[in-house]
Design a protein around this nucleic acid. Structure first.
Lengths: 216, 216
DNA sequence: ATGTGTGAATTACTTCACAGCG
DNA sequence: CGCTGTGAAGTAATTCACACAT
Protein backbone atom coordinates (compact mmCIF):
# COMPACT_ATOMS: atom_id res chain seq x y z
CA UNK A 1 0.00 0.00 0.00
CA UNK A 2 2.78 2.31 0.85
CA UNK A 3 5.76 1.24 -1.10
CA UNK A 4 6.86 -1.50 -3.41
CA UNK A 5 9.94 -2.98 -1.89
CA UNK A 6 11.71 -4.80 -4.69
CA UNK A 7 14.24 -7.52 -3.90
CA UNK A 8 15.99 -5.75 -1.12
CA UNK A 9 16.63 -8.74 0.99
CA UNK A 10 18.78 -8.14 3.98
CA UNK A 11 17.55 -5.19 5.95
CA UNK A 12 13.84 -4.88 6.78
CA UNK A 13 12.17 -1.77 5.49
CA UNK A 14 10.83 -0.86 8.94
CA UNK A 15 14.40 -0.57 10.09
CA UNK A 16 15.36 1.65 7.17
CA UNK A 17 12.43 3.91 7.91
CA UNK A 18 13.55 4.40 11.47
CA UNK A 19 17.10 5.37 10.61
CA UNK A 20 16.21 8.90 9.48
CA UNK A 21 14.48 9.48 12.80
CA UNK A 22 17.55 8.35 14.66
CA UNK A 23 19.68 10.65 12.52
CA UNK A 24 17.41 13.61 13.12
CA UNK A 25 17.44 13.05 16.84
CA UNK A 26 21.21 12.67 16.97
CA UNK A 27 21.39 15.95 15.15
CA UNK A 28 19.31 17.62 17.83
CA UNK A 29 21.44 16.02 20.55
CA UNK A 30 24.52 17.41 18.85
CA UNK A 31 23.15 20.95 18.79
CA UNK A 32 22.30 20.49 22.45
CA UNK A 33 25.95 19.79 23.07
CA UNK A 34 25.58 16.10 23.96
CA UNK A 35 28.53 14.08 22.77
CA UNK A 36 27.41 10.67 23.99
CA UNK A 37 24.05 8.95 24.25
CA UNK A 38 22.72 5.57 25.33
CA UNK A 39 20.13 3.58 23.42
CA UNK A 40 17.90 4.11 26.42
CA UNK A 41 18.15 7.88 26.28
CA UNK A 42 17.81 8.04 22.51
CA UNK A 43 14.79 5.77 22.67
CA UNK A 44 13.02 7.94 25.20
CA UNK A 45 13.22 10.92 22.88
CA UNK A 46 11.43 9.10 20.10
CA UNK A 47 9.30 6.51 21.84
CA UNK A 48 11.27 3.49 20.74
CA UNK A 49 12.62 0.83 23.07
CA UNK A 50 16.34 0.74 23.73
CA UNK A 51 16.49 -2.85 22.49
CA UNK A 52 14.95 -1.86 19.21
CA UNK A 53 17.51 0.82 18.59
CA UNK A 54 20.38 -1.53 19.38
CA UNK A 55 18.96 -4.24 17.20
CA UNK A 56 18.32 -1.85 14.33
CA UNK A 57 21.87 -0.54 14.44
CA UNK A 58 23.31 -4.03 14.70
CA UNK A 59 22.14 -4.67 11.14
CA UNK A 60 24.82 -2.28 10.00
CA UNK A 61 27.68 -2.75 12.41
CA UNK A 62 28.82 -2.13 15.94
CA UNK A 63 28.77 1.55 16.67
CA UNK A 64 28.51 1.68 20.45
CA UNK A 65 30.82 1.23 23.41
CA UNK A 66 29.82 -1.02 26.25
CA UNK A 67 29.26 0.81 29.49
CA UNK A 68 29.25 4.14 27.65
CA UNK A 69 26.77 4.29 24.79
CA UNK A 70 27.17 5.89 21.38
CA UNK A 71 29.29 8.82 20.32
CA UNK A 72 26.62 11.13 18.94
CA UNK A 73 28.66 12.64 16.15
CA UNK A 74 30.14 9.35 15.02
CA UNK A 75 26.84 7.51 15.04
CA UNK A 76 25.25 10.32 13.09
CA UNK A 77 28.02 10.04 10.55
CA UNK A 78 27.50 6.30 10.27
CA UNK A 79 23.76 6.62 9.74
CA UNK A 80 24.17 9.39 7.20
CA UNK A 81 26.58 7.20 5.29
CA UNK A 82 24.18 4.25 5.46
CA UNK A 83 21.37 6.44 4.12
CA UNK A 84 23.54 7.67 1.27
CA UNK A 85 23.59 11.20 2.62
CA UNK A 86 27.25 11.89 2.07
CA UNK A 87 26.21 13.44 -1.23
CA UNK A 88 23.43 15.88 -2.05
CA UNK A 89 20.41 14.52 -3.86
CA UNK A 90 18.79 16.59 -6.58
CA UNK A 91 15.01 16.55 -6.30
CA UNK A 92 12.28 17.89 -8.56
CA UNK A 93 8.93 19.14 -7.38
CA UNK A 94 5.78 18.87 -9.45
CA UNK A 95 2.64 20.82 -8.59
CA UNK A 96 2.84 24.37 -7.34
CA UNK A 97 -0.49 25.32 -5.94
CA UNK A 98 -0.48 26.19 -2.25
CA UNK A 99 1.06 23.02 -0.89
CA UNK A 100 3.69 22.79 -3.61
CA UNK A 101 4.65 26.42 -3.08
CA UNK A 102 5.06 25.80 0.63
CA UNK A 103 7.25 22.78 -0.11
CA UNK A 104 9.33 24.82 -2.55
CA UNK A 105 10.03 27.37 0.14
CA UNK A 106 10.75 24.91 2.93
CA UNK A 107 14.40 25.12 3.91
CA UNK A 108 14.37 21.76 5.66
CA UNK A 109 15.04 19.75 2.53
CA UNK A 110 18.23 21.51 1.55
CA UNK A 111 19.57 21.31 5.09
CA UNK A 112 19.23 17.56 4.89
CA UNK A 113 20.92 16.88 1.60
CA UNK A 114 17.85 17.22 -0.61
CA UNK A 115 18.28 19.98 -3.17
CA UNK A 116 15.23 21.00 -5.13
CA UNK A 117 16.66 21.69 -8.58
CA UNK A 118 13.53 22.20 -10.67
CA UNK A 119 9.87 23.09 -10.33
CA UNK A 120 7.08 21.97 -12.63
CA UNK A 121 3.44 22.88 -12.96
CA UNK A 122 0.92 22.03 -15.64
CA UNK A 123 -0.61 25.51 -15.54
CA UNK A 124 0.93 27.43 -18.47
CA UNK A 125 0.22 30.81 -16.86
CA UNK A 126 2.71 29.89 -14.13
CA UNK A 127 5.53 29.10 -16.55
CA UNK A 128 8.55 31.29 -16.06
CA UNK A 129 7.52 32.59 -12.65
CA UNK A 130 10.41 32.49 -10.22
CA UNK A 131 9.69 30.73 -6.94
CA UNK A 132 12.34 30.62 -4.27
CA UNK A 133 14.98 31.27 -6.91
CA UNK A 134 13.82 28.67 -9.41
CA UNK A 135 11.76 29.20 -12.57
CA UNK A 136 8.55 27.21 -12.88
CA UNK A 137 8.62 24.96 -15.94
CA UNK A 138 5.82 23.25 -17.79
CA UNK A 139 5.35 19.52 -17.23
CA UNK A 140 6.58 18.88 -20.77
CA UNK A 141 10.05 19.87 -19.60
CA UNK A 142 10.19 16.99 -17.13
CA UNK A 143 12.07 14.52 -19.35
CA UNK A 144 14.85 16.87 -20.35
CA UNK A 145 15.38 18.45 -16.95
CA UNK A 146 15.27 15.18 -15.02
CA UNK A 147 17.79 13.69 -17.44
CA UNK A 148 20.24 16.59 -17.43
CA UNK A 149 20.35 16.77 -13.64
CA UNK A 150 20.34 12.99 -13.22
CA UNK A 151 17.42 13.37 -10.84
CA UNK A 152 16.32 10.23 -9.01
CA UNK A 153 13.88 11.75 -6.50
CA UNK A 154 10.66 13.66 -7.02
CA UNK A 155 8.00 15.25 -4.85
CA UNK A 156 4.50 15.20 -6.27
CA UNK A 157 1.98 17.75 -5.01
CA UNK A 158 -0.60 17.73 -7.79
CA UNK A 159 -4.34 16.96 -7.52
CA UNK A 160 -5.27 13.29 -7.09
CA UNK A 161 -6.67 13.15 -10.60
CA UNK A 162 -3.29 14.07 -12.10
CA UNK A 163 -1.00 12.19 -9.76
CA UNK A 164 -0.69 8.87 -11.58
CA UNK A 165 -0.05 10.58 -14.88
CA UNK A 166 2.68 12.78 -13.40
CA UNK A 167 4.23 9.81 -11.63
CA UNK A 168 4.33 7.88 -14.90
CA UNK A 169 6.07 10.79 -16.62
CA UNK A 170 8.60 11.09 -13.84
CA UNK A 171 9.41 7.39 -13.87
CA UNK A 172 9.74 7.41 -17.64
CA UNK A 173 12.21 10.25 -17.25
CA UNK A 174 14.36 8.28 -14.84
CA UNK A 175 13.04 9.07 -11.36
CA UNK A 176 13.31 6.13 -8.96
CA UNK A 177 11.84 7.49 -5.73
CA UNK A 178 8.64 9.46 -5.32
CA UNK A 179 7.15 11.27 -2.39
CA UNK A 180 3.47 11.62 -3.16
CA UNK A 181 1.27 14.17 -1.40
CA UNK A 182 -1.80 13.44 -3.54
CA UNK A 183 -4.54 11.51 -1.73
CA UNK A 184 -4.34 8.46 -3.93
CA UNK A 185 -2.13 5.38 -3.94
CA UNK A 186 -0.07 5.66 -7.10
CA UNK A 187 1.26 2.62 -8.92
CA UNK A 188 4.88 2.19 -9.85
CA UNK A 189 6.89 -0.63 -11.40
CA UNK A 190 9.48 -2.76 -9.62
CA UNK A 191 12.54 -0.81 -8.73
CA UNK A 192 10.72 2.43 -8.03
CA UNK A 193 10.00 3.45 -4.47
CA UNK A 194 6.93 5.41 -3.50
CA UNK A 195 6.02 6.97 -0.16
CA UNK A 196 2.70 8.61 0.54
CA UNK A 197 1.81 11.54 2.75
CA UNK A 198 -1.88 11.62 3.56
CA UNK A 199 -2.88 13.93 6.41
CA UNK A 200 -6.57 13.15 6.07
CA UNK A 201 -6.00 9.43 6.52
CA UNK A 202 -3.82 10.07 9.54
CA UNK A 203 -6.49 12.24 11.11
CA UNK A 204 -9.15 9.64 10.33
CA UNK A 205 -7.09 6.97 12.05
CA UNK A 206 -7.31 9.15 15.15
CA UNK A 207 -11.01 9.93 14.91
CA UNK A 208 -11.44 6.16 15.12
CA UNK A 209 -10.05 6.11 18.64
CA UNK A 210 -11.63 9.38 19.72
CA UNK A 211 -15.09 8.32 18.60
CA UNK A 212 -14.65 5.10 20.56
CA UNK A 213 -13.81 6.93 23.78
CA UNK A 214 -16.81 9.19 23.73
CA UNK A 215 -18.99 6.10 23.61
CA UNK A 216 -17.31 4.80 26.79
CA UNK B 1 7.86 6.55 17.71
CA UNK B 2 4.75 7.34 15.86
CA UNK B 3 1.92 7.14 18.25
CA UNK B 4 1.19 6.13 21.77
CA UNK B 5 -1.56 3.57 21.54
CA UNK B 6 -3.11 3.42 24.98
CA UNK B 7 -5.11 0.37 26.07
CA UNK B 8 -6.90 -0.13 22.84
CA UNK B 9 -6.94 -3.83 22.90
CA UNK B 10 -9.02 -5.44 20.26
CA UNK B 11 -8.23 -4.01 16.88
CA UNK B 12 -4.59 -3.64 15.82
CA UNK B 13 -3.53 -0.12 14.96
CA UNK B 14 -2.19 -1.20 11.57
CA UNK B 15 -5.70 -2.20 10.67
CA UNK B 16 -7.16 1.11 11.80
CA UNK B 17 -4.59 2.95 9.73
CA UNK B 18 -5.61 1.09 6.60
CA UNK B 19 -9.31 1.81 6.95
CA UNK B 20 -9.05 5.42 5.77
CA UNK B 21 -7.28 4.22 2.63
CA UNK B 22 -10.04 1.75 1.95
CA UNK B 23 -12.60 4.48 2.46
CA UNK B 24 -10.82 6.87 0.16
CA UNK B 25 -10.59 4.25 -2.55
CA UNK B 26 -14.23 3.28 -2.22
CA UNK B 27 -15.02 6.93 -2.63
CA UNK B 28 -13.14 7.03 -5.91
CA UNK B 29 -14.84 3.84 -7.06
CA UNK B 30 -18.17 5.45 -6.32
CA UNK B 31 -17.41 8.51 -8.40
CA UNK B 32 -16.32 6.15 -11.17
CA UNK B 33 -19.78 4.67 -11.04
CA UNK B 34 -18.80 1.26 -9.66
CA UNK B 35 -21.42 -0.13 -7.33
CA UNK B 36 -19.73 -3.37 -6.41
CA UNK B 37 -16.12 -4.37 -5.80
CA UNK B 38 -14.23 -7.51 -4.79
CA UNK B 39 -11.43 -7.57 -2.24
CA UNK B 40 -9.16 -8.53 -5.12
CA UNK B 41 -10.02 -5.49 -7.18
CA UNK B 42 -9.90 -3.11 -4.24
CA UNK B 43 -6.55 -4.53 -3.22
CA UNK B 44 -5.04 -4.00 -6.64
CA UNK B 45 -5.81 -0.30 -6.46
CA UNK B 46 -3.88 0.15 -3.26
CA UNK B 47 -1.27 -2.60 -3.29
CA UNK B 48 -2.79 -4.68 -0.55
CA UNK B 49 -3.61 -8.38 -0.80
CA UNK B 50 -7.22 -9.43 -1.06
CA UNK B 51 -6.85 -11.59 2.03
CA UNK B 52 -5.64 -8.63 4.03
CA UNK B 53 -8.62 -6.55 3.14
CA UNK B 54 -11.03 -9.33 4.02
CA UNK B 55 -9.28 -9.98 7.31
CA UNK B 56 -9.19 -6.31 8.19
CA UNK B 57 -12.88 -5.88 7.56
CA UNK B 58 -13.72 -9.05 9.46
CA UNK B 59 -12.63 -7.30 12.66
CA UNK B 60 -15.72 -5.14 12.34
CA UNK B 61 -18.35 -7.38 10.83
CA UNK B 62 -19.42 -9.12 7.66
CA UNK B 63 -19.93 -6.60 4.93
CA UNK B 64 -19.53 -8.66 1.78
CA UNK B 65 -21.63 -11.07 -0.22
CA UNK B 66 -20.15 -14.39 -1.25
CA UNK B 67 -19.77 -14.74 -4.96
CA UNK B 68 -20.37 -11.01 -5.42
CA UNK B 69 -18.04 -8.84 -3.38
CA UNK B 70 -18.83 -5.65 -1.53
CA UNK B 71 -21.44 -3.02 -2.25
CA UNK B 72 -19.25 0.05 -2.63
CA UNK B 73 -21.62 2.56 -1.12
CA UNK B 74 -22.62 0.37 1.81
CA UNK B 75 -19.05 -0.61 2.66
CA UNK B 76 -18.03 3.03 2.52
CA UNK B 77 -20.83 3.85 4.91
CA UNK B 78 -19.73 1.12 7.28
CA UNK B 79 -16.12 2.26 7.31
CA UNK B 80 -17.11 5.88 7.79
CA UNK B 81 -19.21 4.85 10.74
CA UNK B 82 -16.35 2.79 12.18
CA UNK B 83 -14.01 5.76 11.85
CA UNK B 84 -16.47 8.06 13.56
CA UNK B 85 -17.04 10.08 10.43
CA UNK B 86 -20.79 10.34 10.67
CA UNK B 87 -20.17 13.67 12.37
CA UNK B 88 -17.88 16.54 11.47
CA UNK B 89 -14.79 16.98 13.57
CA UNK B 90 -13.68 20.48 14.49
CA UNK B 91 -9.93 20.90 14.08
CA UNK B 92 -7.57 23.71 15.01
CA UNK B 93 -4.41 24.57 13.13
CA UNK B 94 -1.36 26.07 14.81
CA UNK B 95 1.45 27.65 12.82
CA UNK B 96 0.74 29.72 9.74
CA UNK B 97 3.94 30.19 7.89
CA UNK B 98 3.98 28.73 4.38
CA UNK B 99 3.04 25.16 5.19
CA UNK B 100 0.37 26.14 7.67
CA UNK B 101 -1.15 28.56 5.18
CA UNK B 102 -1.27 25.85 2.55
CA UNK B 103 -2.97 23.53 5.03
CA UNK B 104 -5.47 26.23 5.94
CA UNK B 105 -6.44 26.59 2.29
CA UNK B 106 -6.60 22.88 1.50
CA UNK B 107 -10.19 21.89 0.78
CA UNK B 108 -9.53 18.19 1.30
CA UNK B 109 -10.02 18.32 5.05
CA UNK B 110 -13.49 19.77 5.01
CA UNK B 111 -14.61 17.34 2.31
CA UNK B 112 -13.67 14.52 4.63
CA UNK B 113 -15.40 15.64 7.78
CA UNK B 114 -12.54 17.65 9.22
CA UNK B 115 -13.54 21.29 9.73
CA UNK B 116 -10.81 23.74 10.57
CA UNK B 117 -12.50 26.04 13.05
CA UNK B 118 -9.61 28.17 14.28
CA UNK B 119 -6.13 29.28 13.30
CA UNK B 120 -3.31 30.17 15.66
CA UNK B 121 0.09 31.68 15.22
CA UNK B 122 2.58 32.98 17.77
CA UNK B 123 3.52 35.96 15.58
CA UNK B 124 1.55 38.94 16.93
CA UNK B 125 1.79 40.81 13.62
CA UNK B 126 -0.37 38.07 12.06
CA UNK B 127 -3.16 38.41 14.63
CA UNK B 128 -6.47 39.40 13.12
CA UNK B 129 -5.48 38.60 9.55
CA UNK B 130 -8.18 36.64 7.78
CA UNK B 131 -7.01 33.44 6.10
CA UNK B 132 -9.46 31.37 4.13
CA UNK B 133 -12.31 32.99 6.03
CA UNK B 134 -10.88 32.56 9.52
CA UNK B 135 -9.11 35.15 11.67
CA UNK B 136 -5.63 34.26 12.91
CA UNK B 137 -5.50 34.24 16.69
CA UNK B 138 -2.57 34.41 19.06
CA UNK B 139 -1.47 31.17 20.72
CA UNK B 140 -2.75 32.51 24.04
CA UNK B 141 -6.27 32.07 22.70
CA UNK B 142 -5.81 28.31 22.37
CA UNK B 143 -7.38 27.32 25.71
CA UNK B 144 -10.56 29.35 25.30
CA UNK B 145 -11.14 28.52 21.65
CA UNK B 146 -10.43 24.82 21.98
CA UNK B 147 -12.77 24.62 24.94
CA UNK B 148 -15.66 26.54 23.39
CA UNK B 149 -15.61 24.46 20.21
CA UNK B 150 -14.96 21.21 22.04
CA UNK B 151 -12.02 20.60 19.75
CA UNK B 152 -10.32 17.22 20.03
CA UNK B 153 -8.05 17.37 16.98
CA UNK B 154 -5.20 19.71 16.11
CA UNK B 155 -2.74 20.15 13.29
CA UNK B 156 0.65 21.50 14.29
CA UNK B 157 2.78 23.21 11.65
CA UNK B 158 5.18 25.23 13.79
CA UNK B 159 9.00 25.05 13.81
CA UNK B 160 10.53 22.04 15.55
CA UNK B 161 11.76 24.19 18.42
CA UNK B 162 8.21 25.25 19.27
CA UNK B 163 6.37 22.01 18.57
CA UNK B 164 6.51 20.36 21.99
CA UNK B 165 5.43 23.56 23.71
CA UNK B 166 2.46 24.00 21.38
CA UNK B 167 1.50 20.36 21.75
CA UNK B 168 1.56 20.69 25.53
CA UNK B 169 -0.72 23.73 25.34
CA UNK B 170 -3.12 21.95 23.03
CA UNK B 171 -3.32 18.89 25.24
CA UNK B 172 -3.84 21.03 28.32
CA UNK B 173 -6.71 22.69 26.48
CA UNK B 174 -8.38 19.35 25.79
CA UNK B 175 -7.02 18.18 22.44
CA UNK B 176 -6.69 14.41 22.20
CA UNK B 177 -5.32 13.85 18.70
CA UNK B 178 -2.45 15.70 17.06
CA UNK B 179 -1.12 15.69 13.55
CA UNK B 180 2.41 17.01 13.77
CA UNK B 181 4.25 18.39 10.76
CA UNK B 182 7.27 19.54 12.75
CA UNK B 183 10.37 17.38 12.26
CA UNK B 184 10.56 16.18 15.83
CA UNK B 185 8.87 13.37 17.72
CA UNK B 186 6.64 15.09 20.23
CA UNK B 187 5.72 13.53 23.55
CA UNK B 188 2.19 13.14 24.76
CA UNK B 189 0.58 11.48 27.78
CA UNK B 190 -1.50 8.32 27.70
CA UNK B 191 -4.79 8.84 25.98
CA UNK B 192 -3.50 11.34 23.45
CA UNK B 193 -2.76 10.19 19.91
CA UNK B 194 -0.01 11.69 17.83
CA UNK B 195 0.79 11.15 14.16
CA UNK B 196 3.83 12.58 12.46
CA UNK B 197 4.36 13.78 8.92
CA UNK B 198 8.01 13.96 8.02
CA UNK B 199 8.79 14.31 4.32
CA UNK B 200 12.53 14.48 4.86
CA UNK B 201 12.60 11.16 6.70
CA UNK B 202 10.51 9.56 3.98
CA UNK B 203 12.89 10.81 1.31
CA UNK B 204 15.87 9.63 3.31
CA UNK B 205 14.36 6.16 3.58
CA UNK B 206 14.40 6.13 -0.21
CA UNK B 207 17.91 7.50 -0.65
CA UNK B 208 18.96 4.44 1.33
CA UNK B 209 17.79 2.13 -1.44
CA UNK B 210 18.87 4.37 -4.29
CA UNK B 211 22.38 4.74 -2.93
CA UNK B 212 22.58 0.97 -2.64
CA UNK B 213 21.63 0.44 -6.27
CA UNK B 214 24.20 2.77 -7.69
CA UNK B 215 26.86 0.76 -5.93
CA UNK B 216 25.60 -2.38 -7.67
C1' DA C 1 28.54 -0.28 37.51
C1' DT C 2 26.86 0.65 33.00
C1' DG C 3 25.26 -0.19 28.60
C1' DT C 4 26.16 -2.71 24.11
C1' DG C 5 25.25 -6.63 20.87
C1' DT C 6 22.62 -10.60 20.05
C1' DG C 7 20.59 -15.32 20.11
C1' DA C 8 16.21 -16.92 21.93
C1' DA C 9 11.47 -16.13 23.12
C1' DT C 10 7.58 -13.68 22.30
C1' DT C 11 4.28 -11.10 20.10
C1' DA C 12 2.28 -9.15 16.03
C1' DC C 13 1.06 -9.27 11.29
C1' DT C 14 0.17 -11.42 6.91
C1' DT C 15 -0.97 -15.03 3.88
C1' DC C 16 -2.89 -19.55 2.96
C1' DA C 17 -6.42 -22.39 1.89
C1' DC C 18 -10.82 -23.86 2.11
C1' DA C 19 -15.73 -24.38 3.93
C1' DG C 20 -19.78 -22.33 2.81
C1' DC C 21 -23.02 -19.16 0.82
C1' DG C 22 -25.34 -16.62 -2.95
C1' DC D 1 -18.93 -20.95 -10.17
C1' DG D 2 -17.06 -16.68 -7.61
C1' DC D 3 -15.85 -14.54 -3.73
C1' DT D 4 -16.37 -13.89 1.30
C1' DG D 5 -14.98 -14.91 6.12
C1' DT D 6 -11.79 -17.22 8.97
C1' DG D 7 -9.11 -20.70 11.53
C1' DA D 8 -4.48 -22.38 10.85
C1' DA D 9 0.11 -21.75 9.13
C1' DG D 10 3.72 -19.04 8.09
C1' DT D 11 6.53 -14.63 8.41
C1' DA D 12 8.07 -10.70 10.35
C1' DA D 13 9.02 -7.53 14.04
C1' DT D 14 9.82 -6.66 18.78
C1' DT D 15 11.34 -7.54 23.28
C1' DC D 16 13.86 -10.28 26.61
C1' DA D 17 17.73 -11.33 29.05
C1' DC D 18 22.35 -11.98 29.57
C1' DA D 19 27.39 -12.57 28.23
C1' DC D 20 30.76 -9.43 27.74
C1' DA D 21 33.46 -5.16 27.23
C1' DT D 22 34.88 -0.78 29.41
Amino acid sequence: MDQNAPETNDIPDVVVRRLPIYARTLDYLLTEGKSSVSSQELGERINVTAAQIRKDLSWFGEFGKQGIGYDVEKLLGHINRILGLTVNWPVVLVGLVYLGQAIARYAGFREKGLHIVALFDADPTKAGTILNGLPIQGDEEIPRTVATHGVKLAIVAVPATKAQEVVDQLIAAGVRGILNYAPIIVQAPEGVWVRHIDPVSLLHSMTYYLAREQAT
